[in-house]
Design a protein around this nucleic acid. Structure first.
Lengths: 65, 65
DNA sequence: ATTGAATATTAATTCAAG
DNA sequence: CTTGAATTAATATTCAAT
């Protein structure tokens, strides 16, 4: 279900630093939600998530707009 | 020079809706600043620009973070 | 309406080079 | 240190299919 996945995404991105949609898909799969990058792309748009430079040395992470 | 280009970029994105880095490069070239997508990519990072959903029907535009 | 696989498009990076 | 050309990587979209 989409809403469960959306909720999980919000949780994941505040817990971990996620750098790519593929990585987010993997994180979801690790939590037994089967999903592909294509769907993540759509989810990110629906949730108004944007990629922002991460605080630390790393390159970027997903964050709320 | 980089600073002139950066200033110009800021101006362009508040005037026009720019959807891709290539389009931004073209807008700059139209203003006689010769630049490629690779450089725009770096500029965007340095200026902390992020892509946000456009207000209207269009898909996206560049905006300040 | 939601999704995945495949594809197309866009963006970031590498690797010289100035 | 800045850049472009070429390449790689990431993301968006198309095209079924459910």
């Amino acid at each position: 279900m989409k809403n469960r996945r959306h909720d999980l995404i919000k949780k994941i991105i505040e817990e971990d630093v996620i750098e790519t949609q593929e990585a987010l898909a993997e994180a979801l799969r690790a939590r037994h939600v089967r999903v592909t990058q294509a769907t993540i792309s759509r989810d990110i748009k629906e949730l108004f998530l944007i990629k922002v430079p991460a605080g630390g040395g790393r390159r970027s992470e997903e964050r709320f707009s």
